[in-house]
């Protein structure tokens, strides 16, 4: 991250935080859905199906394997999205960042 030539405006800062919260809500929603949703609450329902190409019950697999893979993907998405938001805020590419300089 290079040092910005100008500081972002108040509006840009607020937009950054709102975007941050939006992505947190989405990602934590997925986090809840794959762990508590598929692994606990809906597990009995999902157990009626099997993992494609095998004979292992889907709910059981989600609780023991699937949810962990999803967690890794969630953090990867988070790192990408946030690094992009940081860059937009500091470079002012969202069109509003340069107002206050």
């Amino acid at each position: 991250m290079e040092k910005p030539t100008h500081l972002p405006s108040e509006a840009a800062r607020q937009r950054y935080w709102r975007q941050n919260l939006k992505w947190l809500t989405i990602l934590l929603g997925c986090w809840f859905a794959v762990s508590f949703g598929c692994g606990v609450l809906l597990a009995d329902f999902l157990d009626r199906f099997t993992v494609p190409g095998s004979k292992v019950k889907l709910g059981f697999w989600m609780a023991q394997q699937g949810s962990i893979y999803c967690f890794v993907i969630l953090i990867a998405v988070y790192a990408r999205v946030m690094n992009r938001l940081d860059w937009e805020l500091l470079q002012g590419t969202d069109g509003a960042g340069s107002e206050a300089s």
Binding site: L24, S67, I75
Partner: peptide, 14 residues
């Protein structure tokens, strides 16, 4: 399994 890895997600995000 879910508890110890899912906690890591909370840590990294929140």
């Amino acid at each position: 399994l879910m508890g110890w890895t899912g906690g890591y997600v909370l840590l990294a995000l929140l």
